[in-house]
Design a protein around this nucleic acid. Structure first.
Length: 416
DNA sequence: TCTGGGGTCCTAGGACCC
DNA sequence: TCTGGGGTCCTAGGACCC
């Protein structure tokens, strides 16, 4: 058996932990740049606010309905997520952290009462972290996912205990609620009159393989109770790393694009070093605002392979700026840029380049010194001049809460 | 004025090897 | 009448997830 633990309305719940007066009130959290609504309290859902709805279309509605609005505070959410995970590991030895707000638990070998266990987990996480969760339990990960959706409607716990129960549950599960069925496959299934998870299990294997490949086959078997998707116990290192952002304000100036792109390249280098990887490929892309129909649209990217795999700030910035200048043209108004590093490998086994003349040792010593200072005095306290000050392009985050759990200057204050 | 960010897996097809 | 067989590696594109 597997359990899927999912934090309810996670980002909103994180904000509520430190603002208890928000309990019972409509609350939403916005995406980067205060763009879209990406987390909603139950009250906000009941008001009819939709997932991923652009916030600017709802400015008046939010105000009129006294909805509390927050910018994304990923520092806070990341730390709260780690606290939830830590509590979960007290209950089971094997756990897969599936996303910032979800974890799969391996319950095979557990012989006690599942309902008692689930209740225990739910209450302990709430007490230790303040975060409300739902627990879905089933014989496969796909069924645990379905059970979790049911749990959200029935007090926070739902268990698929046996085959008869499974059968009745999947007859009541719409096909688009299955893990792994997205918009495109839903359209395909709809055209073929497949409307429930039960209908899906009756599909012919040959048809399924032709239309949905091995993914479709896996889903069918999982729905029938045969476990095909195993628990991933170790976090695999990433195969690609991206830093991409829409700008707070559009720009056509090369100097500002250079500031943004070099800053993103530095972020990529930091993320690479964190997982002890180096990158062999680097891509830079820039594009205009896809929502503005009155503007000429442009979408350009350039990928280069690095002479020697690297995770050094100065090197990645140099290559990123080269790519940017290859694709830049001054006649467009750019809305977004990004840097993606790919072809990652361990930093311990870098292939040297016969014609490489740069002094890597020197780079590394310099960067280590800078990292140390920045760790002590704050991110980007010392940076490359080309990174600029970001004032003209950085994110809008007008409703940011404090980093209550990770920064001494922002710790919660209690007045008595 | 205003619409997010960061990933994974699978497959087909081309290039290349002996 | 007629031009081999069997592989690997890489990439782009399409699907999905949160």
């Amino acid at each position: 058996m597997f359990a899927l633990v999912d934090c309810n309305n996670f980002y909103v719940s994180c904000e509520r932990v430190f603002n208890p007066h928000l309990e019972g009130k409509p609350v939403v959290v916005l995406s980067n740049n205060d763009g879209c609504i990406i987390s909603r309290s139950d009250e906000a859902k009941r008001l009819g606010l939709k997932m991923a709805e652009p916030a600017f279309l709802k400015t008046r509605f939010l105000k009129e309905n006294h909805v509390y609005v927050f910018s994304s505070n990923y520092t806070l959410y990341g730390d709260m997520s780690a606290r939830v995970t830590e509590t979960l590991t007290q209950f089971v030895p094997e756990i897969e952290i599936y996303s910032i707000d979800e974890a799969f638990l391996n319950l095979s070998g557990f012989s006690g009462d599942l309902n008692t266990l689930a209740n225990n987990i739910k209450n302990t996480v709430r007490r230790n972290t303040g975060i409300p969760i739902s627990v879905g339990i089933g014989p496969t990960k796909t069924l645990a996912k379905i059970a979790n959706k049911a749990a959200k409607l029935s007090g926070g716990i739902f268990i698929i205990r046996n085959d008869q129960h499974r059968d009745s549950v999947i007859r009541n599960t719409p096909v688009n609620k299955i893990w792994g069925i997205g918009g495109q496959y839903f359209k395909l299934l709809e055209r073929n009159k497949i409307s429930t998870a039960y209908d899906f299990t009756l599909l012919d294997d040959n048809w399924l393989r032709a239309k949905m490949k091995v993914m479709g086959m896996r889903i069918k078997r999982e729905l029938l109770g045969e476990s095909c998707i195993l628990l991933e116990l170790t976090v695999p290192s990433k195969k690609a790393i991206a830093t991409t952002r829409a700008f707070g304000k559009k720009t056509s100036k090369i100097e500002l694009l250079e500031e943004a792109v070099s800053t993103y390249a530095v972020r990529c280098a930091e993320k690479l070093r964190m997982q002890h990887s180096v990158a062999n490929l680097l891509t830079v892309f820039i594009h205009t605002d896809p929502f503005n129909q009155n503007e000429v649209q442009i979408n350009k990217s350039k990928t280069i392979s690095l002479p020697v795999a690297s995770n050094e700030n100065i090197e990645l910035v140099k290559h990123a700026l080269y790519c940017l200048n290859q694709i830049y043209s001054s006649s467009y108004n750019y809305k977004k840029a990004g840097v993606i590093v790919d072809g990652l490998q361990s930093e311990k086994q870098v292939q040297a380049n016969l014609f490489d003349k740069s002094n890597r040792e020197k780079f590394r010593n310099l960067r280590n010194a800078v990292d140390k200072l920045n760790y002590e005095f704050g991110r980007d306290k010392i940076k490359l001049a080309v990174q600029g000050d970001g004032k003209k392009w950085k994110l809008r985050q007008e409703k940011l809460s404090q980093r209550y759990t990770t920064n001494w200057n922002e710790i919660i204050e209690v007045r008595i």
